[in-house]
Design a protein around this nucleic acid. Structure first.
Lengths: 217, 217, 217, 217
DNA sequence: CATGAATGAGTGTTCATTCAT
DNA sequence: GATGAATGAACACTCATTCAT
């Protein structure tokens, strides 16, 4: 059960053909890239860990970089997925989320769990974005096209309701994301061995963002 | 003037002896590490860019990793330096900072300018922390010993005054830092080519943190 | 025919799979090590002489030292092999060797031919023993376990018969070996270009040892 | 001037003009060459051990090989020295040595002590002779010119007296030297940690050679 | 004279990639 | 398809030697 995200990953690539070898390669690549970084990981290590011949990797992925993208792109899409779902936006206007607070809480909880599950991949993503322009472009496009516009609608909705302060959407988004990423990195990367009360941390983060965005008296 | 941080760097290493070659090596290393990442940069590239023989690098730095640390450690110290200064803390109690707002504004402005000046090095630092345990340890120690305790005093001071909410200091610190790092990374890494009104962004970040930490009614 | 020992060597390693490349590497290594010494020979020279890529060497032998041992160990075993054979000892008591003289003559002739055939390897062995503790250990073990005890039996046998003097076995062994090695080194290393009557030299060496060990009147 | 070790040699025989630095270098070189072998020793190691700058070595010895010869040649000469001395030969005919036995005992004792004292250098010599043609030539010349002819006289003298067998001088020389070298290498190189009764070993070696060379009945 | 910084060719070893099997 | 042997360029690092100080 613990590796079922892999199945999702492969499913997401379009080829639902469950190729066991391919899966093992991707799995091994995620482990190694996450542990040592992309450049510092050799294809022979990945092959060994995957239990396949080195040549097999290059049958599926022409270059090492292709493998990196194959590993990373599906997760990227999945990470943004909730925002794609039409219902997601609809629910807000349908008063499923009657408040920005509820919206925040739901999204943060959701993304926090996503991070817990996919942290190795998230780590790869964060590490490699600055060095892989295609990755950066992909992310920026994803953000600009899919996430930003939806978030804007939501933000404007609550701004009109007077629930959150009237600052430009990029600011709202940045503050929100910074706080969430700050939580996630502290929790899973910087101090993973500390004892955490995740619910409490999420709640306090929600409150911090909420008050930070509260209209000033 | 644009590279004067380098002089600082070398001064910080203790060798005030201006060794031009050493400087060129460090400069080249920062450039390349920042551009391609530590693992993906070869010592021959650094040598070429520095205009020295490859052997010369190893005269000054026994291993490539030593070079990384030589590049990164002084900046780490400098980054934490403001917090070391006694007067820094004193000023707060002497009402130099009569409010958390003023304190926040001063610190953020200061660190923002530091980031602008040292961004390449900051990038290296962020990239390599997850793969260099010694680096992570150094940072954690620096935090635990030098920064956290001072910040705690300040936070408690303003908590007693009722200016900021009574939540555990680590939370206060994390929210503050997350917002600042979020600003810095967005500004210099993710969207550096955008037109930015830095003053306004800093101010809005200050306000966000401030309200986020305001005691709830 | 001149390089048939190589086949033996590889056969001795257990892999009877005739790998042509591996053979060429070993052949080249023996040539170079023998000619220039282990330290003074570079893996690139070996690769060039073997007609393979340098990387190929390291596919078969993880390190240069591994290659040295791969070259040297089988010969070591072969060198001691005659002493392992049970019949060797038996024959003496079965009066196949009715005298120490006959025994000496047989062994010296035998080892002399071995030396002629394997001299490059013998040279490597002699050169590297002082610098490779593992090699020295291996040889000492081989001596202690396999050679010494058998020789002791033989020596004691002829001592009891009054054919050779009653001095401690190590002495008998040392005198014998010194004379043989002295012959071999003079013949093949120091003055190889001289005209030699090998049979006569062997015979005179046999006689020298024999009389040197004759009981004193 | 590829033969400047000659200067060294001459200096050694005449006024010991070598300054302290030069001596420290030679001493360090002997230590290191003996310990790790010539090729495996770096000039920087020698410099460090000698407590001088690396450049200083090259002021005295143009190349590393020159240093090797400077280290080794004087010892070579010294080793052969006893044979140069006229009185050495004279004494034999003057009945100072009334027997080959006494002659043998004196020489072996003498060379044994020399070996004990200079063993590191002897080791270097033995190791490097096969790879340094100049060294081999020098030794062969030394042998041919200085040692062989004197030894021949002595050998013939005792052959005429009927004390030793009438075989060609090279054989007599080889048997004698083999036994002595065999003793020395076993004693100082192969089993140096064993407990040795040096006097007894020398004596038994003398007897072995003596009887080995005794005229056959 | 002595130094040690500087060099660039060379070291042993690893790498991503290819390709015959 | 899958393999793993083979490659040679690249890697981090060391070397003997030079030369300005």
């Amino acid at each position: 059960m613990k590796e079922d995200w892999l199945e999702e990953l492969i499913a997401a690539t379009g080829t639902d053909k469950r190729n066991e070898r391919q899966m093992r390669i991707l799995e091994a690549a995620v482990d190694m890239f996450s542990e040592k970084g992309y450049s510092a990981t050799s294809t022979s290590e990945i092959a060994k860990r995957a239990g396949v011949a080195e040549g097999t990797i290059f049958r599926y992925y022409k270059t090492k970089k292709d493998l990196l993208f194959a590993v990373v792109m599906p997760t990227l899409t999945k990470f943004a997925a909730p925002f794609f779902v039409q219902t997601f936006v609809k629910e807000i206007f349908d008063n499923t989320y009657d408040s920005y607070e509820n919206f925040l809480r739901t999204v943060i909880r959701n993304r926090f769990e996503f991070a817990r599950k996919h942290f190795p991949m998230l780590k790869i993503l964060i590490q490699e974005v600055p060095f892989q322009p295609e990755l950066k472009d992909e992310i920026q496009q994803l953000f600009a096209k899919e996430i930003y516009s939806r978030f804007e609608k939501i933000a404007n909705h609550f701004q009109e309701q007077g629930q959150i302060i009237e600052i430009p959407t990029p600011g709202v988004l940045r503050f929100t994301i910074s706080a969430v990423i700050g939580l996630i990195l502290t929790r899973f990367l910087l101090l993973p061995e500390e004892k955490w009360d995740d619910e409490a941390e999420i709640e306090s983060t929600v409150q911090f963002i909420l008050y930070g965005l509260t209209p000033r008296r």
